[in-house]
Structure formats: C-alpha cells, structure tokens
Design a protein around this nucleic acid. Structure first.
Length: 662
RNA sequence: GCCCGAGUAGCUCAGUCGGCAGAGCAGCUGUCUUGUAAACAGCCGGUCGCAGGUUCGAUUCCUGUCUCGGGCUCCA
C-alpha cells in the first residue's frame, strides 16, 4: 500500500496512506486533537481538514487555541449567520462577512429596503443555533468565474465580487484587493464556494471548520448600517455584528470585558463624578468642564507646561480666528476645507475659525530675521482649534468639534531634524509614562496619494527622518501607506489603556511645505538664506481626548496627584466638626485638595458617598483623633482602615503619592 | 454626512392598545449625633426633546427637526 510522509511542526514525521487528509492526520496523532482540529496549514497555507495531503508536505493542525483557528471559527460563524438571515428573510441578498477582532459581521440587503432591528437578532440567533445543531458539513467547491456568476445569479453583490476580483484584468486577482473583497475570493479566474446544505452556498476562499457543529460559542451583538465596499456613494447595507469564541468561558469573559468597558465609559463617569457635561444647547461635540473636571485639566496642563519649560520650549499664544487669506496661504482651504467651520464675513473680510495652530506659529517665526544660531526654535501653545467633524463621528471627549491641542512647532535646520525628532519621540514617551501609560503602538504614515503638496524628494527625506527616529527609539511600529497629512508624513503614537484598548494621541509630523508657503528663512553660517523645516508635534494630542482616555484608563479612580478631591474628611459627630475644619485647613495650606463632609448623615453613608466618588482617601475623625491630633485613614483599594495616624504622617504619605504620581 | 436605534423628573428607568404621568436614587425640610460602603419621616420636582399634522382629546399615531447611542466614513 502506497504511503506518504509529512512533517509536523515539531520536526517529526508521520507516514499515512496515500489519499489521507489533514483530518486523518489529526486523528492519527490523537483523538483529542481530532476533536479540536478546525483547519490545517499545509506548507504554511491554510486549508480545510478535508484536503488530501501529498508526500513531503509540512502540515500543522490548527485548533481554536490559535489565532488562525479562532479566525476560522468566526468566519464560519459568519456563514451560518448569512444562512440564517437568507432563510428567514426571503428575497434578502448577502454581501461580505469577514472575521474581525473578537468576532465577525455580515452585510445584507433585505428586500424593499427592509431593516433588521436589534430585537430580531434573538430570532436570527435561534435559527443559527438550529443550523449548528444540524451539524451541516462545509463542503468546498471550485468552479470557473463564469460558473460562479450563474450560481450567484440572484445575488448582485456576490456577482460584483466575482467580477471585480476573480475576473480582474491580468488574471492574478491583484486588481483592487486593498479592500475587504480580497478575503472573499482568491482571484485568478477561478472561484471557490462552500455549500453547507442543499439550500445554502456562499462565495468564499475559505478555509472553514469541517461542519457547523464545531461552532456555538457566539452571540449576535448589534445591527448597524455600512456602505457597500466602504463607499458613501454606494448602497447602505444592514450589517449584523457578532462575537464568537472557542469556549463558553471565553465568550463569557469577553462579555464581561465589554461590561467592564461600559462601566469605564468616560461619558458615564464624567456625569457620575461631576467632571463635565455636554449640554445639548451647545451642539454636538461641545462640552463644558465642571469644577472637578477643570481641576484635573489644570493639573494636566500645568504638568505639560512644566515639561515644556524644561524642554526649552517657548510658550506662545495665538487667536482663535484669522482671515481666510491665511488659510489659503497655508493650504488648509484647499486640503482641509471640509473639516473647517464655514467663513464668517464681516467688515468686507472673511474669517475662519482655526482648525490648526501651525500658520500662527509660522508667522511668529517670520516676525523676525532668524539666524542658524537661533535654531531649533521650539514654540509651545495649548491652542484651541475647531474642526467640523461629521455629526455621526462625534463621540464624547474622544471626538469633539472644539479641542485644545498641546501643540508644538519646532523650526529647525534640515540637518537638525533627525536628532530633533529622535529626542521628540523620547520626550513624548516620557510624558505619556508620567500619566500611567506604558504600552504604545506607533505608526508611520506616508504621503497621501491624492491630497498632498510638495515634491517627492522632500517627502522621502522627511519620511526617512521619521523612520530612523522610530528605529532608534526601539518602538515597534507599523506602516500606514498614504496616511500622512497633506503637508508631510507623520508618526502617530497610540496608547493602550488599562483594559487594552488603543487610543491615538501623539503625533509628530515633518513639514517642508508650510515653511515654503510662508517663505520662512534663516541666515546660515555661510551667510546665505536657508529654508527651515517645521516639525508639528502634539503630545497628548488634545487635552480633551487625553482626559477622556485618562478617565477610562483609571476607570475614574484617578491617582492622588490627579484626583480632583484627594481626601474627604468625615467628622464622626458634629462635635468633631471644628477639628475636621482644622484638618482641612492644614492640608489645604500644604496644597492638597480636600473637603469636609459634615455629620448630618450617618458615617457609613458618607463613606459610601466618598467611595462612589472614587476618592483616594477618606479621613474619619472622632474623639480619639481630636485628643491626639490624628486621623483615621481609609485608602481607596486598601483593606479596611488605619486608626490613629498622625496628621503629619498622613500629609507625608499624600505628598509622597503626589510626588510618585500614584 | 449616511444606515439603524433611542429621547418620560437632576440621574437610572417603568408606563400610557389615544382619556389629568409613576418608582428608586439625588435634592430640600425636620428628627437623629453617628468610628468605616445606604438612619427615619415629610416635601419639592415633568409643556413625556422641539415644531407641525390627524383627532372631541396626542406624551402615545403621522411628518419634519434637534440631540444622543451603535455602526460606516473620517480623525487629535
């Protein structure tokens, strides 16, 4: 009997009869693996378990324990979703349904533009469970693109996928697959599809789990609108989002994480902790800062100012509006107009609210003749800008229409730029770490293909300077081709918060264009006039977003150095009120933010109130404390209370917390 | 901006198949004077987002609009 030999990931080999499949291999290795197997990789390509193996191949069995396995699980669950929806809504058609982080989605168009509401999801989910219960096999079939068009005759979106990808000119399928379609079908004039019942097939490059019975730990999450092929001019489809996991436990853990994230939502905490609010009278994306929110903001800003002073930045200040001519010169009206508020006409002139601070800083630079001896000049401003964000994009503090950038523009000689950028990256990380962030994602964004100004050589030079600074920093980074600003490439640094979500904050941008447009110059050592390079840099990005991220990062439990109220002083009874006032006064004099909660309510209730406000410390003072100049200290997150702590010791402890940013 | 959903007291939410709108918490007043996560009682509080329409009558049905939420797109 003929045999084949394949190599396993650990380097060992297995011999199997000719015709054996990856599934057979899994069974040969062990029943546990056979049960857990979802797909396999053969010579590093992912395939169904049903494919026959060939002699000499490198084969690995993939389970839900790996990313690839989990992705497949989600992808297959998406297919089951499509099957359920198509069965339940006759006349519905389907578009694409890829796996995504934590789950999957599928896009549908229902007949006559019907929509699916959230409460219909339960019924869809129930139908999906029936399909899973039936344990239908996923059978792979390959046909020509032409046959594919016939198979999917009633499904225009599927036909469009086949036409645009599988039948792309050149036949290699590399047409426009920068988008989601590429996942659906490989191209090359052939298509593959999967059949898992008499009535349901789906266009797909695969692979899939062997049968629907392997699925089950999923939940449909929401319905949303989404444009076909991510194009606002194309039809809007009904998108159903779901999450899927390898086990019931993983699913439960995921749902728990979501609930935790919701508890940390800065919009919820902003209200609960009385930090700020968004009166609808102001319009979307505009907030007012309440005293407690403003207290934290001032600490953030003061810290930022101090670090900039230490870094030889020169504070500047500029107005909020300027003549439209300024924005023509800068190029903003050409390249950024859709994000700008419309012009205000008065006294025969036209003015725009500023969407960025850079042109003002360029004019400050230009106000005097500059020498190479002056460079680099680092200007710093907490500059409030206004951007007309799409109403649907506005999101609490994270995306607002007015926000304050901790904005710097550094004017440097070209040869100074690389070193300056390198030190900027270090500066940015140092400040972010001071606020408790220690995990970062960096990204290098290059020239946008359409909207941009300047020559290739300058773009290349600027991109190279950023790249080398990133390399030197040791940060890992990814490349975002075409993601740069209209005037130059950029580095973005995102921080990860306490529950692993990523937020874009810092940006460093190299710009040869604005100096050109504004005719900026300096006199070099050679006596000739040279053009400086301008480095744009926002560190926290926007104070508003930064604060929003901080709220969510700490879940509202700010460390003592940031907390709007560091300690609440609770007299046990009214007779201790005078002593409480004295404690308050002494701590206030040392610069601490403290308050007294008088004994009009029972102690337990006042403690509870302070805890719900997530205060770092609750100080209880009673007879013993009055007698010995002590306080009872109840620290947030501590176990129980410490009695009889001298006031001096507590003040020292709080001072040390503040110093250490605890 | 587009798709879907939602706006009821300061907050969280019930409710009205079209007939004078409810709870808890918060707030206020009084009593209680408290040693580590919710004392007791009473009171105040709503043009049911806004504007039209249908109706004897609209918070409820319809239309428009504003705001919010989830997505898409975009972004600090």
């Amino acid at each position: 009997m003929a045999e084949i030999t394949v190599t396993l990931p650990d380097g060992s080999t297995r011999t199997l009869p000719v015709g054996a499949t990856a599934g057979d291999l899994a069974a040969d290795i062990g029943p546990g693996l056979a049960k857990a197997a979802l797909i396999a990789t053969v010579d590093d390509a992912e395939v169904d378990l049903g494919v026959p193996l060939a002699d000499g191949q490198k084969v690995a069995i993939v389970t839900a324990g790996s990313d690839a396995g989990l992705t497949t699980l989600r992808h297959s669950t998406a297919h089951v979703l499509a099957q359920a929806v198509l069965e339940m809504y006759p006349g519905a058609t389907y578009a694409v349904g890829p796996p995504i982080q934590d789950g999957f989605y599928y896009d549908f168009a229902l007949p006559d533009g019907a929509t699916i509401s959230d409460d219909q999801l339960e019924a869809v989910e129930a139908r999906m469970r029936e399909i899973i219960e039936a344990d239908q096999p996923f059978e792979r079939h390959e046909v020509s693109a032409g046959e594919g068009l016939e198979l999917f005759a009633d499904h225009p979106y599927k036909r469009e996928i086949i036409e645009t990808v599988a039948m792309a000119p050149g036949g290699d399928g590399a047409g426009q697959p920068a988008d989601e379609l590429a996942d659906e079908v490989a191209g090359g004039g052939q298509i593959s599809y999967y059949r898992n019942s008499d009535s349901f097939i789906d266009l797909c490059r695969g692979p899939h789990v062997p049968s629907t019975g392997r699925l089950g730990h999923f939940k449909l999450m929401s319905v949303a609108g989404a444009y076909w092929r991510r194009d606002a001019h194309r039809p809007s489809l009904q998108r159903i989002y779901g999450t899927a996991w390898a086990s019931r436990k993983d699913l439960a853990a995921h749902l728990h994480r979501l609930a935790e994230a919701d508890k940390r939502d800065h919009r919820r905490l902003a209200r609960e902790l009385d930090l700020l609010s968004w009166p609808t009278e102001l319009g979307p994306g505009l907030a007012v800062w309440h005293p407690k929110g403003a207290a934290v903001r001032r600490i953030i800003e003061d810290y930022s100012r101090r670090r900039h002073d230490e870094g030889d930045y020169l504070p500047v200040a500029t107005p909020h509006i300027a003549r439209s001519e300024l924005w023509e010169t800068s190029g903003h009206l050409d390249f950024y107009r859709e994000s700008m508020y419309p012009p205000m006409k008065l006294d025969g002139a036209s003015y725009h609210l500023k969407p960025m601070n850079c042109p003002f800083h360029a004019l400050i630079y230009k106000s005097a003749q500059r020498s190479y001896r002056d460079l680099p000049i680092r200007m710093f401003e907490l500059g409030t800008v206004y951007r007309y964000e799409l109403s649907g994009a506005v999101h609490g503090l994270m995306r607002s229409r007015g926000f304050t950038q901790d904005d710097s523009h550094i004017f440097a000689a070209r040869e100074q730029a690389p070193a300056e950028i390198a030190s900027l990256v270090a500066f940015v990380l140092s400040v972010l770490r001071a606020f408790g962030f220690d995990s970062f994602d960096a990204r290098l964004s290059t020239r946008p293909p359409e909207k941009s100004i300047g020559g290739d050589a300058e773009w290349d030079m600027a991109t190279e300077a950023l790249r080398s600074a990133l390399e030197a920093s040791g940060l890992e980074y990814e490349l975002d081709e075409g993601g740069g600003a209209f005037y130059g490439p950029k580095i973005d640094i995102d921080v990860r918060d306490a529950i692993g979500r990523s937020w874009q904050l810092s940006t460093i941008q190299v710009d040869f264009q604005l100096p050109e447009r504004f005719g900026l110059e300096y006199v070099g050592a050679d006596g000739n006039r040279h053009r400086p390079v301008m480095i744009h840099r926002a560190l926290m990005g926007s104070i508003e977003r930064f604060f929003g991220v901080l709220i969510e990062h700490y879940g509202g439990a700010f460390p003592a150095w940031l907390a709007p109220v560091q300690a609440s002083i609770l007299p046990v009874a009214a007779t201790h009120s005078d002593y409480a006032a004295e404690v308050e006064s002494r701590l206030s004099q040392q610069g601490f933010r403290v308050q007294v909660a008088e004994a009009q309510e029972p102690l337990g209730r006042r403690i509870r109130a302070a805890k719900l406000q997530k205060l770092p410390y609750v100080l209880v003072v009673g007879d013993d404390d009055v007698a010995h100049a002590t306080v009872g200290v109840n620290a947030r997150g501590g176990d129980g209370d410490e009695r009889g702590v001298s006031l001096e010791d507590f003040a020292a402890r709080l001072a040390s917390d503040v110093e250490a940013h605890r």
